[in-house]
């Protein structure tokens, strides 16, 4: 199928982009890497009147270390992240990147696009939640910041308003002693996860400072504080995991054409167990 017709503009500054969005009365759609938006347009399930291509905006680019944070511009591609030595400071992202789609998609797909789209099965939202990243937005009333843990609201729904743009994400760099885990269950390399988990802990024996982000399990990426609390202070053994897993009741697991909701819940536990095992090894 071919995309429906639309107007296209490529602003050169953030201010110009914001003013285009403000003037479009909700009919404008920002275009980042296009790796999710373009398929939707090609299927004619997305039919924006105006496409605002963000590729020409310098304010959305660049990876910079700012103290204990790594600031990643929204239009940074996965490939640029992968190639940037600064990424060593955020090993969890480095662990996850090879699992995100395939080379040609990573060459254009952007971190900002993934976060703004908020696909429930995508890795980046869960990673940002797990890392306690901060999402920088810009809108007609100026910039604001939203913690990643409060950003994802539902199916393709975020705290970003239609007249706002996601500018950057600030990710805390790994502290000494901090460890990370990542595991996703996919039938094929590069597919969206049937369930996935990202883990961060400040200590392992016993587990301390634990954050666990789940993706591909429900309508959005999410963390379950009660579950994290239940595992904190344990040795991360299978018994400890089994004792904590009922706390995942807080998640509304979803079934699809491939697996039932019950299986997805089971998968979340398996992914967690495997990620934790590898992390503690």
């Amino acid at each position: 199928m071919k995309a429906p017709d639309f107007d296209y503009c490529r602003p050169g500054t953030l201010a110009e982009a914001l003013s285009l969005l403000a003037g479009a009365d909700g009919e404008a759609q920002p275009l980042a890497g296009g790796q999710s938006l373009m398929p939707m347009m090609n299927f004619r399930v997305a039919a924006p009147e105006i496409l605002v291509d963000l590729a020409g905006i310098p304010e959305l680019r660049g990876i910079a270390r700012q103290g204990d944070m790594l600031r990643i511009g929204a239009m940074t591609t996965y490939r640029e992240l992968q190639d940037d030595p600064a990424l060593q400071a955020v090993p969890l992202i480095a662990m996850a990147l090879p699992h995100i789609a395939h080379d040609a998609v990573r060459n254009r797909g952007t971190i900002g696009g993934s976060l703004a789209l908020a696909d429930a099965a995508a890795e980046m939202p869960a990673l940002m939640m797990t890392l306690n990243a901060v999402i920088e937005l810009a809108g007609p009333d100026g910039p604001r910041e939203v913690p990643a843990t409060e950003f994802f609201l539902g199916y393709y729904e975020t705290a970003c308003e239609p007249d706002e743009l996601l500018v950057a994400v600030r990710v805390p760099v790994a502290q000494p002693g901090e460890v990370f885990g990542f595991h996703e269950l996919v039938q094929r390399h590069g597919d969206y996860a049937m369930a996935g988990v990202a883990i961060r802990a400040t200590g392992v024996a016993p587990i301390a400072g634990l954050a666990v982000g789940f993706f591909g399990v429900s309508d959005r990426a999410l963390r379950v504080p009660a579950f994290e609390e239940a595992l904190t202070g344990t040795d991360g053994s299978e018994a400890a995991i089994a004792a904590a897993l009922p706390k995942l009741d807080a998640i509304e697991f979803e079934g699809d054409t491939k697996i039932s909701a019950e299986t997805r819940r089971h998968y979340a536990g398996v992914a967690l167990k495997r990620a934790l095992k590898e992390m503690l090894a």
Partner: peptide
Amino acid sequence: LYEECLYSPEGQLLNTTMADYIVPMAAE
């Protein structure tokens, strides 16, 4: 192992994309 055209009870084909109808790829 992978391929199936899945229909709803009403006869709606549920997997009409290559992300939903999965074919063998090299890695597996």
